[in-house]
Amino acid sequence: MRLGRRTVPYALLAPGAVWLVLFFVIPLYYMGKLSLESGTIGALEFSWQWSNYGDALSLYDTQFVRSFVYAGLATLFALLLAYPLAYAIAFKAGRWRNLLLFAVVAPFFTTYLIRTLAWETILSDQSPVVSVLDFLGLAPGGHVLATGGAVIAGLTYNFLPFMVLPIYASLERIDERLIEAAKDLYASSRQAFWRVTLPLSAPGVVAGTLLTFIPASGDYVNAQFLGSAGNQMIGNVVQSLFLKQSNYPSAAALSFVLMAVILIVVLVYIRFAGSEALMGEEAAR
């Protein structure tokens, strides 16, 4: 084996690795150190203060649970909206395909913040949208803005493209002859979808749910602008601890807990739901 062949992969890895060490690992180290400090600002001392973690969890468990509930619901709604949309774009759109894809991505031409602020107008008490929802009995108290529903709607909207694009990518790659073959073997359209199309698109669904769920659970912009005092998420608490209360150790500890919880949730998800689907074992059966 020539030397070059062994070193090439490392050389290719190097820029990314250096980047990660500089901008991820090192900040993470300082944050870890900060999370174990005690005292007030100006007199913080490193003291293996593990109680920061316990305190953070017991004080803010409500917001933790709320974050994952909101992010989970937003992911679910995004999936329900995105799958039919991606399916239509991949199989039914014909020459409109590129235009529709462009329409999915188009909102990204304006910033995240502006898009969220636009929802303040859409969901304002006097808006036609809210009148319709009120008529349908879906807006208790006649207002949607500054409620949990508005936060979930905002999250769903903001992360929708992250769900649509991976699903579209995996649907678009499917060899349509496989579906034909299924039908030749007397599968109904419905059976062909459940037994062939859906399993083959599973990698896209898994990627989409991760790309939606992870950023949504750490989001604070939607809760800040569309929510009220009872709808703040864990990101808002971290922001408040860092910037308003100057309680850096608790904020750092909370960030670490959030990171750990998300990591565990994702690993479990990939292990049980993901790995089989990712490997396409359902389809092979």
Partner: peptide, 11 residues
């Protein structure tokens, strides 16, 4: 006081 007030804001 700040912690108490922020707790109301972040309910």
């Amino acid at each position: 006081i700040t912690a108490a007030f922020e707790a109301v804001l972040n309910g």
